[in-house]
Design a protein around this nucleic acid. Sequence first.
DNA 1: CTGAAAGCGCTAACAC
DNA 2: GTGTTAGCGCTTTCAG
Lengths: 355, 355
Amino acid sequence: MATAKDVADSLGLSVSTVGRALSDDARISAETKVRVVRAAEAMGYVVNRAAQMLRGAPSDIIGVVVPDISNGFYATIAHALSRVFARNQFQVMLGETADDRTSELRQVRGFVAAQVAGAIVVPTAQPAPETVRLLRGLPHVQLLRNVSTLSPHRFGIDDEQSLGQATRHLIQLGHRRIAFVGGTPDLSTGAARWRGYAEMLRSAGLAVEPALSELGPPSSVAHGRAAVDRLMALPDPATGLVTGSVQATRGVLEALLARGTDVPDELSVVGFGDEVGWSWWGPGLTTLSFPVQQLATTCGLWLLDQLSAVDAACTTAAGGAYSSTSPGTLVLRGSTAARGDRVTDPQHGSRPAAD
Amino acid sequence: MATAKDVADSLGLSVSTVGRALSDDARISAETKVRVVRAAEAMGYVVNRAAQMLRGAPSDIIGVVVPDISNGFYATIAHALSRVFARNQFQVMLGETADDRTSELRQVRGFVAAQVAGAIVVPTAQPAPETVRLLRGLPHVQLLRNVSTLSPHRFGIDDEQSLGQATRHLIQLGHRRIAFVGGTPDLSTGAARWRGYAEMLRSAGLAVEPALSELGPPSSVAHGRAAVDRLMALPDPATGLVTGSVQATRGVLEALLARGTDVPDELSVVGFGDEVGWSWWGPGLTTLSFPVQQLATTCGLWLLDQLSAVDAACTTAAGGAYSSTSPGTLVLRGSTAARGDRVTDPQHGSRPAAD
DNA sequence: CTGAAAGCGCTAACAC
DNA sequence: GTGTTAGCGCTTTCAG
């Protein structure tokens, strides 16, 4: 790999002249500049960022940590971020946590060692203390999830309101026994989504039955599948179901198809997220849709702005905590229907009940 | 950010002692080691990779370039690669090209500047000369696609055989007019897939009608949609259809659903790739499935092995070009049916033909 | 307009 | 066992 010195030697110049010529310094004659640039090109010279950074050049790498890039939700996020950063001449360093705090720590440690300029994190439920310490020394933003020990800057979706909306939709259709299948309440998002569901039930005067709340691991298709089996085995099954994560939804959809459950007549379903193909699942999935792409793009832009602000005036806290919340939209398709269409019995359930 | 010198000063030691203690050098007393490690931890010291690399330490970053990470195919690849590399203490630098050679060049340039140890690339149809030059100086592997100017090492799928298989399936079901909707033949994969289709037709004694080959941009959902509309508007429409890319398939599926085409009775369809949800599209999509995850994992492992080999004995070409090809499997579902079931007319098409 | 030299943080060869 | 020193490739004073 050719260095600036190699270029200099080949032209009988000094390193400094070469460096200046390449950075288009005003003091270098136009002619020399051309010679240097040409020689550099011919030798395949590419500046050594390690050396630049050692000299204190601002890093052009931004770390991005997500739980699982093969999850469409996060893939979309990574795509949007990668685009914004590339447009602004930044490289993206990608890390997956699999929702494991040890992996998370390893990734963040890698970021710090690689001297990233900043980071965008979808944190695990409870990051390791060292992860927190390391991120403290790094401009960063939380995406989607929210952990109080990390940066106060967060871009997320309105989890509680969204699930309230989904639940209300079912209530308005006459459903009284509505189940929730989602992720762990240890996660800020898991908790908020369940709250949205539960609060909406309460405010409609309905009881929140523990047996109808299926809270599992952070993001698990298997949990979604298993939850459906458990729910359908109840003596008095639910007539409506809302889900609280993309993966849970996936599992629920698979299980319902496998069991041959009649949707929406036997069960009305509202999904979470709007992945490719959900519109053609069964009767079409009624689901919560989120502006993930825009959310991620905005988040990236905001971080970039923070970085340049830190550069300009060494003021890290340029105006307090920033938190942005995007609302979800309910996309109506065929998987939800009025309960009255089927059962006219005003009491809960359609069977005489075994208890 | 604390440096080794800071740690040294705080303990009244020299930088080298600190460096040695942290790298667990045999010559340092156990007691000193403990003191140093503790102090380093307390001060939040993280080694500066830029400085290490300047000293010639092998890089622990691997560049990965894909056309579009939001495409499930590539998301799976990125996931698999990220896992292998993380397991082996490597960081992943991610770049998207959007199938544009300028973006590709920018990304690769970034990799070189960031001193990546190696790269895995899904190249654009014709990378810029400079991209080629830069990659020449970098251990790298081509994934899926194949450009002759780049590394001879390639991990891919058997494009030609797979599409042959898909086409044969339709022929065996009695179809005689079979359309192909895929990506540009400028891409090695696009060309091979079309070849697989065309050769199979020929070997079955069927003509390859230009009007039935819809070749579009590298990876475009819109092209898939438009192609269906054009194909169905032909005076003598096809009764079978095979697709040659994930995105094309997506477009085809959307369009068929939108037009309300009766699959498989009016048209039998074989897709490319097996994305989440394709099993529940219409009657279930008969499609080509590829071991993408394993492919990517193997590819990553192979590159890692190359890297350590280069480290050990400065032999870059340790045993000629390596090329691995994984076969696809045809997953039979409901979107294909025997043509005989519907039309008994031995002639092409069912209409009297307008020409 | 160009050159010489210092130093970023780290490691490794060489003292002691 | 620990300290001293040089140098990786680059930028950036300071000289000329």
